[in-house]
Design a protein around this nucleic acid. Structure first.
Lengths: 122, 122
DNA sequence: CGCAAAAGTTCCGAAAATGTGAACTAATGA
DNA sequence: TCATTAGTTCACATTTTCGGAACTTTTGCG
């Protein structure tokens, strides 16, 4: 199996980061990895959003995150251990990831508030 | 001609913003609009990157920026006047746009530095 | 008015990217 | 050796994107 390429920090591009994080599933994965500060397997994210994500799709998502330089993946026996590379990226692009994850957080809070205050459909 | 839909600020999504800004042409446009603080026509950006951008493509790019809520477009006579909506978005997602544009700026500076220090091909 | 030009948009076909089931690979353990 | 589990790769359908050609709006000019 291929040795899992990870770009070095100086090869990480803003385009790739933004593209990777323009998908709700991928941000959810990164946010979780960044928050928990410890490694997680891919299959741990099969229900990262409301509905289940097929594993081939999940694999693609991890690939995108990996190649964007946002996560590091290491094979440990039968499973993959994924960790965030946010600290490295923070050095190169200070505040970038934090503000993106922060914006998503704010967005989901506002979404909650809206459905709470306007639940006429219930 | 259609009346040019602009999402209201509270309908702007982070996904759409990141997707819009994951393209070099579109960031270049937004950065320019945000920096200049005044309106510009679409055709003013035909050479926003090294090579010329076809006008149908440019039109699509402006549409993406518009629908993401990043710019406002108004027809003035024969041409469109585009302005950035960064101030509005700053209220909803503080620091987001600034950190993205900042990251791109840093990236292009580093790219310059690299080609300067390693120009063997010249 | 009629017509030409300029700025954008829309249309459409080609090319690229994405999602996902099915088949495959690699590591583990009985 | 064989079954199981975790992920990857393949193949194909769907979607998105690019860009040339044609179209629409507005303006300016005779």
């Amino acid at each position: 199996m291929k040795p899992l390429l990870h770009p070095s920090v100086e090869d990480v591009s803003v385009e790739a980061i933004l593209h990777a994080l323009s998908d709700p599933v991928r941000v959810a994965i990164l946010a979780e990895l960044a928050y928990s500060q410890c490694s997680s397997t891919c299959s741990a994210f099969q229900n990262v959003i409301d509905k289940p994500v097929p594993k081939s799709t999940l694999s693609q998502h991890f690939k995108v995150l990996r190649e964007a330089g946002l996560i590091r993946a290491e094979r440990k026996g039968i499973e993959m251990h994924n960790t965030s590379r946010c600290a490295e990226i923070e050095e190169r692009f200070p505040g970038l990831i934090a503000s993106i994850v922060g914006a998503y957080t704010r967005q989901s809070q506002q979404k909650l508030k809206r459905t709470k205050s306007t639940r006429r459909t219930a």
